[in-house]
Design a protein around this nucleic acid. Structure first.
Lengths: 214, 214
DNA sequence: GTCTATAGGGCGATAGAC
DNA sequence: GTCTATCGCCCTATAGAC
């Protein structure tokens, strides 16, 4: 999110109300919304259902958020921010571990996985430019982050040098996303166990020294 | 699909109309629906939009399919069947190649990827038992298929023996699904290139002979 | 600035005419 | 077997109370 060239407050947040009370109430609504989604998933995610769970009218929600789509994406953004600077994110060496940790956090809030997957799938449709923009930037940012870690690992010799960082980054993210959905459908799927297999790709083998690219 | 214990015709297909003309018209509607989705994605997937594109009323659609949900899942099933027995599926040795081929086919019909992702995300919600059942069985069937190929590879020495077949199967499927979505959002993502990295996991290294499991 | 009340248009689904 | 008519719900928009 911070990878994009935008100031911290240059968000939709600034749009409603001037400043003193507007944003505070907005944050409050957002926080309540996160609770609701985390608990119930996007079961009955109509604006009216969300509004009722929060204790306001659906029109009040639209006073702070221009549309249902924007509200839901803001919930995802806010949830993401909650874990900013967690564990493995501070160790700029972790690659697979970064995704494993994120996945582990999400397992505690299946409703968020559901919301994320749903919005992601919907972001392809026409008229969902706000969603699409968010997910495009999110994937670009995540890939860039992983690419830089992979390249550092290749420089320091902890990661095989004959791997395309971009392709590997996309793979790790895709695996993490896909596994979370499979887990939702079948709890026997062990996300961490599967993700750890990716470390096999990363590890430099003895016959493939970290120098030499072909 | 055939992995589940069910006769060929024991489908929702048999439910509408007796037999002679009902199922024929049903198949016709299904075929037209596939074209519509393949071309336009699930842009305007309302029953009314689908009906208009096919040239009937939305009520007519509901005469052959009990609900929109069922219709859409049947479209996915029918699309899946179209490619039954393709290329790599006949080579019971291919593992990653099986998913690469499937992904390659889907890239030609982005609307189907979109439909698939959307229905998959929605299948978690309450009241979507039909979708959930389909995806649960689909994943179980795919994983089983891959597990058996992996185990054969491990027996014959073409696949590392120290890998959990179940975890690996889930990983390969997850990566394939996740990469297709990323590709929809950013065509620079190279699905095949990323999937091929998984072959690095599969390949037995010289220091890890295929015998010995721990 | 904040919110309630209300209205427009579209949706999935059903009932009943032909 | 296919249609029209209708129901209840949804998102969105807006007018105006406080």
């Amino acid at each position: 999110m911070t990878a994009a060239p935008e100031q911290p407050g240059d968000d939709v947040a600034a749009r409603a109300g001037s400043y003193p009370k507007g944003v505070a109430r907005r944050q409050e609504i957002l926080a309540r919304a996160i609770e609701v989604f985390a608990a119930k998933g996007l079961e009955g995610t109509s604006l009216r259902a969300i509004a009722e769970a929060i204790g306001v009218s659906h029109a009040a929600l639209l006073h702070y958020f221009p549309s249902r789509e924007v509200l839901l994406i803001e919930v995802l953004k806010a949830n993401e921010t909650r874990f900013r600077g967690d564990d493995a994110d501070r160790d700029p060496t972790e690659i697979v571990g970064m995704m494993t940790n994120a996945a582990h956090r999400n397992v505690g809030i299946p409703g968020m996985i559901s919301l994320y997957s749903s919005m992601l799938a919907g972001s392809i449709e026409d008229g969902k430019e706000y969603s699409r923009e968010y997910f495009s930037q999110r994937f670009e940012r995540l890939r860039a982050k992983l690419v830089s870690r992979i390249e550092e690992g290749q420089s320091s010799g902890t990661v095989r040098a004959d791997l395309e960082p971009e392709a590997l980054a996309a793979l790790v993210i895709a695996a993490s996303d896909g596994l979370q959905v499979q887990w939702l459908l079948d709890a026997r799927v062990d996300i961490a166990r599967s993700l750890e297999l990716l470390d096999v790709i990363l590890a430099p083998s003895s016959e493939n020294p970290t120098t030499e690219n072909s």
